[in-house]
């Protein structure tokens, strides 16, 4: 592809209302993407994603999602590929997803943040049925401490706290199926 074609393409793309353009002619692969498209991806899960959870909470934005990448954490992908890798360790730290609460009532009460599940799994509050829960209500946990076990495909994954926080409430019960993005803990940064 020569410069002239490329420049003309970029200009036409800029003027069009396309959000993304992928061009492949065998020898060259060109991807043009407008900022709006990237924003659309970020905002797809939640209307009006914003930078700081605090600001979002104050404005009461509905369902604001702070993505893992925004927090500078490798995110669910790492966890998934590790899950799929042969010989992966049985005990695996999953970075927790953090979501600001979108429940108006709890917002008013506490402005807490939600720790959400990065995978589809079975929730266990403790390592064994008779052991005490890792993170009961009121407990203060340090960054990196285990919050719960998420069992997927017979793998016991430890969900770890991303920051120092206090547990305000536990949203899942022992043995519950938790979906991707489902709130598990409501926490307050300490």
């Amino acid at each position: 592809m020569d410069d002239k074609t490329l420049i003309s393409l970029v200009e036409k793309f800029g003027a069009s209302d396309l959000a993304e353009l992928t061009l492949e002619d065998g020898a060259t692969r060109l991807v043009l993407r407008k900022e709006t498209a990237i924003r659309a991806i970020a905002a797809a899960a939640a209307v009006g994603a914003q930078e700081t959870p605090g600001a979002a909470g104050a404005q009461g934005a509905a369902g604001t999602l702070v993505t893992l990448s925004a927090l500078g954490v490798s995110g669910a992908q790492g966890a998934q590929s590790a899950l799929g890798a042969p010989g992966a360790p049985v005990h695996l730290g999953l970075p927790a997803r953090i979501e600001t609460s979108n429940d108006p009532a709890s917002l008013a009460a506490s402005a807490g943040e939600m720790v959400t599940s990065p995978i589809v799994a079975t929730f266990y509050a403790s390592p064994t049925p008779d052991a005490p829960a890792y993170a009961p209500v009121g407990k203060r946990v340090k960054s990196g401490e285990t919050l719960c076990i998420l069992e997927a495909m017979k793998m016991m994954n430890h969900l770890e706290a991303e920051f120092d926080c206090e547990i305000i409430s536990v949203k899942a019960k022992n043995g519950d199926l938790v979906e991707y993005g489902q709130s598990i803990f409501e926490v307050k940064r300490t």
């Binding site: 991806i41 899960a45 995978i119 495909m153 979906e179 991707y180 993005g181």
Partner: peptide
Amino acid sequence: VCVGPPASAKSYLVREN
């Protein structure tokens, strides 16, 4: 059941989920 974020590599293609 929600199985992941928008990118299909992280949702519709994640066998375990």
